[in-house]
């Protein structure tokens, strides 16, 4: 049940998504990854991908135009 952070700030699509996909493979069930993004396209496609995998997803607008995407690997 560890928590990891992935800094994808300043990165444009599809880089944050690709890095998220890769990082999620390393996680164990129950682990959490927090992806930090500041591209509005990443705040859409990363949660969308994660939900499709059946993971728990939460999005938090930390400040105007900057989001934390919190993903729990459920299986």
């Amino acid at each position: 049940m560890a928590e990891y952070t992935l800094d994808a700030l300043g990165e444009a699509c599809p880089v944050p998504l690709i890095r998220t996909e890769k990082k999620m493979q390393e996680l164990k069930a129950g682990d959490i990854l927090i992806v930090q993004v500041d591209h509005s396209c990443a705040m859409k496609n990363v949660p969308e991908w994660a939900r499709k995998q059946g993971y728990n997803v939460e999005l938090e607008e930390v400040e105007e135009g900057r989001w934390d995407i919190i993903i729990e690997k459920t299986k």
Binding site: N56, E58, L59, E61
Partner: peptide
């Protein structure tokens, strides 16, 4: 807050709405 609500406890005086975190 952009998250899915996974459960609720509404009967009590204090209502609880749960997301995964």
């Amino acid at each position: 807050k952009l998250a899915e609500v996974q459960g609720v406890e509404l009967e009590g005086e204090t209502k609880v709405v749960k997301t995964f975190r």
